[in-house]
């Protein structure tokens, strides 16, 4: 027995999640030599920016550091473009490069205090690398879940993320207390996690 009218939810459920391997292959098949290979490489790199950023953020837990390492990773990937086997899946290879850049970053900044200790970063990298396909699906579900948020919550996140405001600044701007901002942020994140789980569960049923 299913949920009545489930079709209306299915329409907005994940589309193509789990087909990453096929997409990469299709792109590979389309790519030939010379400039077409460049196009294919750029396309792959573009398509997987979210996955790479999610992997690095999962490992470091800090946004500015993540952007720095993502940039270094992109440069490294571009320099290695000529050795990339276009018949192989792109993301595992790119994650491998990103791992190296995360470690290089931790070595370079070994005297700084980071969110996670070097040991924890290594453990998290392993988990994040293993979970890449699942994270990819969760990321796509999250994009849909953002659309489902009430407008007032989206506006709140817009202030928080787009304008990179501190909790105190967000509190001032939205007329809330600091504690209320923290509490609202946690509630929204939990709602989003719940939404992701729901969407993925629906997707599994289909």
């Amino acid at each position: 027995m299913g949920i009545p009218n489930q079709a209306s939810y299915a329409e907005s459920s994940l589309d193509g999640c789990g087909t990453e391997q096929m997409d990469d292959k299709q792109i590979s098949d389309a790519g030939g030599g010379g400039n077409e290979s460049v196009d294919v490489f750029i396309r792959l790199l573009t398509d997987h920016q979210v996955d790479l950023q999610a992997f690095i953020m999962s490992s470091l837990g800090n946004h500015p550091d993540t952007l720095d390492v993502l940039q270094a990773t992109n440069i490294a990937l571009w320099k290695k473009a000529t050795v990339f086997d276009s018949k192989a899946p792109f993301l595992p290879w790119a994650i491998g490069v990103a791992k190296y850049e995360v470690l290089a970053f931790m070595r370079k900044r070994r005297r700084d205090r980071h969110t996670f200790s070097p040991e924890v970063v290594e453990l998290l990298m392993d988990v994040a690398a293993q979970r890449t396909p699942e994270t990819s699906c969760r990321s796509r579900a999250l994009m849909e879940c953002i659309k489902e948020l009430p407008e007032r919550n989206r506006e709140f996140l817009q202030i928080r993320y787009a304008q990179q405001q501190s909790v105190q600044q967000v509190a001032t701007k939205t007329g809330r207390t600091v504690d209320a901002v923290k509490s609202l942020f946690l509630r929204i994140r939990r709602a989003l996690e719940h939404c992701i789980d729901r969407r993925l569960a629906i997707d599994d049923q289909l």
Binding site: Q49, V50, Q53, A54, F55, I56, M57, S58, S59, L60, G61, H63, T66, F116, S117, E119, V120, L123, L124, V127, A128, R131, T135, R138, S139, L142, M143, I146, L157, Q158, R160, Y161, A162, R189, L192, E193, I196
Partner: peptide, 27 residues
């Protein structure tokens, strides 16, 4: 917590990956 607990590491990865998506989207 993260040193000793695998489930906590998984949850942390999911949470931080979500942060990355939210940062990208809203920026």
């Amino acid at each position: 917590i993260l040193l000793r607990d695998e489930k906590a590491r998984e949850l942390t990865c999911d949470f931080m990956a979500g942060e990355a998506v939210l940062q990208r989207h809203f920026q």
